[in-house]
Computed example of a mutant assay.
Amino acid sequence: MPKYLIERRMPGVGKMSAEDLKVASQTSNEVLATMQKDGRNVQWLESYVTDDAIHCVYLAPDADAVRDHARIAGFPADSVDQIRATISPSTAE
Rank of each mutant, 00 (worst) to 15 (best):
G12L: 14
S47D: 14
D62H: 05
T86V: 11
R67D: 10
G14K: 11
V80S: 00
V23P: 01
S79F: 04
S79R: 03
A63K: 01
L32A: 07
Y48N: 13
V23A: 10
C56W: 02
D20N: 08
E93N: 08
I72G: 07
F75Q: 03
C56E: 01
M10V: 15
Q36W: 11
I87F: 14
V13S: 12
S90W: 03
A63I: 02
E19S: 06
D78R: 04
I83M: 11
V49F: 05
I6L: 10
H55N: 06
S47H: 13
M16P: 01
S28L: 10
E30L: 11
A65R: 00
P61W: 04
D64A: 13
I83N: 03
I72M: 10
L5C: 09
V57F: 04
V31M: 10
K37P: 02
K3G: 00
Q82P: 06
L32M: 10
I54S: 06
G14L: 09
P11S: 13
A18K: 13
S17M: 06
H69C: 05
I87Y: 13
Q43I: 08
A63P: 02
Y48W: 14
S25F: 09
D62M: 04
R71A: 15
Y58Q: 04
T91H: 05
K22T: 11
L5I: 09
E30G: 06
Y48C: 09
V66P: 00
I54G: 00
I83K: 04
Y58I: 09
E46S: 10
V57P: 01
S88K: 03
V80W: 03
D62T: 02
A77Y: 03
L5A: 12
T34H: 10
V23K: 10
W44A: 14
I87K: 08
N29L: 15
R8L: 08
D38K: 15
A77H: 05
D51P: 06
I54A: 08
A65K: 01
Q26K: 10
V49C: 12
A92Y: 14
G14W: 05
H69E: 12
A70N: 05
E93Q: 05
E19G: 01
D38S: 15
Y48H: 13
S17Y: 06
I54L: 08
P89L: 12
S90Y: 05
